[in-house]
Design a binder for these strands. Structure first.
Length: 371
DNA sequence: TGGCAATACTG
DNA sequence: CAGTAT
DNA sequence: GCCA
């Protein structure tokens, strides 16, 4: 007897095509699929709107409101790509990542020149103090609030405290240093010193500068080093090298403070360095990675953070997981998306392959500026 | 209306 | 663990 | 705050 093959409605070619389209549409909403150059031309017609929304987002971040800052960042990302001025609710609301609330604010900004909610917020003297304290390395909302609650108003007030944590004291002592942008040329010069010493210790080691520097920025907030060594399969293989490197650079007077040191199985070192003859302390981070994780580490340390979050979210939607060590597949999660299994490693060594496996078009670092 | 990245180090 | 950092 |  012949068995009739009946297409289930959802498997007809037409429907399948439609489903593929909807898959594609879903993916197109991920920032990482398009990236951005971050080049905000001085003539961007929305620069004033962007500036105000930026402050509004920062304000929410500073008072610890969850998720809104990210929403503002995404909205700003949309405006930055435009070449036309958006000055009314109707035009704004059509744009991706701009909903009712932000569209209203855009209209207010364009008609009055400012945002009343923001003006009120920034007029609050307590908030000024909060902003001051939050820019201390090692100080977050929780600590800043406690200090404000206790009546402290200045960095000098804090320096008089007997129970400051080690890193907090460094953060305050070098408050201005750490909050001063580093010109690209200086990052290059600082990097050359590290590279020279690294090569002197072990020729199989490669040290590259990631972060905003790799994205082509002309100033950076800190220096992010990714260090790898040929034929290594675990970051443990690099810990002794890192120890030697840090010792040598400290001895040379280049490294001037250690803020965090890797655990026995760890991989990151945070601290400060200074160019000979330059009194400014600069934040510097080392991430040591085995060759097998180099691509994932590079992706992670190149950022920007919006790009990272976007591509990691995309991975998780595909039942995968992306972290600084690699891309994993078959990750099991609960209905609440809580992770149940690590998944199996698919790729870690090659940055391009990770893009490919995720279906994300490769883009050079300077096109990963999404904020 | 629920989800929004994922992980390392300090105290 | 909560907090801070990337 | 925005989006699926």
């Amino acid at each position: 007897m012949k068995i009739a093959i009946v297409h289930h409605p959802e498997t007809t070619p037409k429907i399948l095509a439609a489903q593929r389209m909807s898959e594609k549409d879903k993916l197109s909403s991920f920032t990482c699929m398009y990236g951005g150059t971050g080049k905000m031309h001085k003539d961007n017609p929305n620069r004033h709107t962007i500036d105000i929304l930026q402050q509004m987002g920062e304000y929410y971040a500073q008072i610890g409101v969850p998720w809104k800052p990210q929403a503002y960042q995404k909205a700003i990302g949309t405006l930055k790509k435009l070449e036309v001025k958006i000055d009314c609710f109707e035009d704004a609301i059509r744009l991706p990542n701009i909903g009712t609330r932000i569209a209203k604010k855009i209209e207010e900004i364009c008609t009055t020149g400012h945002l009343r909610t923001l003006d009120n917020a920034l007029a609050d003297p307590t908030h000024k103090t909060l902003q001051l304290f939050l820019r201390i390395y090692g100080v977050g909302l929780s600590q800043a609030h406690k200090w404000i609650q206790a009546g402290h108003k200045s960095l000098d007030d804090l320096l008089a405290l007997p129970d400051l944590h080690k890193n907090q004291r460094i953060g305050i002592d070098h408050y201005d240093d750490f909050n001063t942008r580093i010109p690209r040329d200086e990052v290059t010069a600082l990097g050359d010193i590290v590279k020279k010493v690294a090569a002197d210790i072990n020729l199989n080691v490669e040290a590259i500068i990631g972060g905003s520097y790799r994205r082509g920025a002309d100033t950076s907030g800190d220096i992010d080093f990714i260090i790898t060594k040929r034929n290594t399969r675990s970051s443990w293989d690099l810990l002794s090298f890192l120890e030697t490197l840090v010792a040598r650079l400290t001895c040379d007077g280049f490294l001037v403070a250690a803020l965090t040191v890797p655990a026995s199985s760890g991989s990151k070192w945070h601290g400060a360095c200074a160019l000979p003859g330059n009194p400014l302390w600069r934040r510097i981070d080392f991430l040591v990675v085995p060759e097998t994780e180099f691509g994932a580490a590079l992706l992670y340390f190149t950022g920007d953070d919006i790009f990272n979050r976007s591509i990691r979210l995309l991975a998780s939607k595909k039942n995968m997981r992306l972290n600084q060590k690699g891309l994993y597949k078959d990750v099991l999660r609960t209905f609440g998306r809580e992770k149940l299994s690590e998944g199996t490693l698919v790729e870690g060594g090659d940055e391009r392959k990770i893009f490919d496996l995720l279906g994300v078009p490769w883009r050079p670092p300077h096109e990963r500026i999404c904020r």
